[in-house]
C-alpha cells in the first residue's frame, strides 16, 4: 500500500496552507499515483517550476512511495479567482 489521498492532503495543507486543494487518486487504489490541483498564496511571484518544486518538496516523504504525481494546477489565489470567473462567464455565455 502506498500513500493515501488523505495523507497527501494533510501534508499539503500543513505545509502550503492552500486555499483550495483537490487531490485525485489516479492510481486505481494502490496509492502510487495522484493528480493535484492546488491554490496557495505561497506561489505568489514564483514560476511554475518553483511552484512544482514547493509541492514536490512538501511531499518529499510521500514521494518515495508515489510513482506519479501530476500537478494539474499550481496557482495563486488571484489566478484561481480569475480562472473561476472566466469559466463562469464562458459557461454563462
Amino acid at each position: 500500500m502506498g500513500v493515501t489521498k488523505e495523507q497527501v492532503e494533510s501534508t499539503l495543507k500543513s505545509k502550503l496552507n492552500p486555499s483550495h486543494l483537490e487531490i485525485i487518486d489516479t492510481s486505481g487504489g494502490c496509492g502510487a499515483s495522484f493528480a493535484i490541483e492546488i491554490v496557495s498564496e505561497q506561489f505568489e511571484g514564483k514560476r511554475l517550476l518553483e511552484r512544482h518544486r514547493l509541492v514536490n518538496a512538501a511531499l518529499e516523504e510521500e514521494m518515495k512511495q508515489i510513482h506519479a504525481l501530476s500537478i494539474k494546477k499550481a496557482v495563486t489565489p488571484g489566478q484561481w479567482k480569475q480562472q473561476l470567473e472566466s469559466e463562469k462567464s464562458t459557461s454563462a455565455a
Partner: peptide, 25 residues
C-alpha cells in the same frame, strides 16, 4: 536539477520542468 521525476526538459541549460509544466505551457 533538484527535480524528483522524469521526464525533465532543459532549455538553454535550465530546467523548464516536467510533463505537467510543458503541457500547461
Amino acid at each position: 536539477s533538484n527535480w524528483p521525476t522524469f521526464p525533465q526538459i532543459f532549455v538553454n541549460g535550465e530546467l523548464i520542468g516536467g510533463c505537467d509544466i510543458l503541457t500547461s505551457m
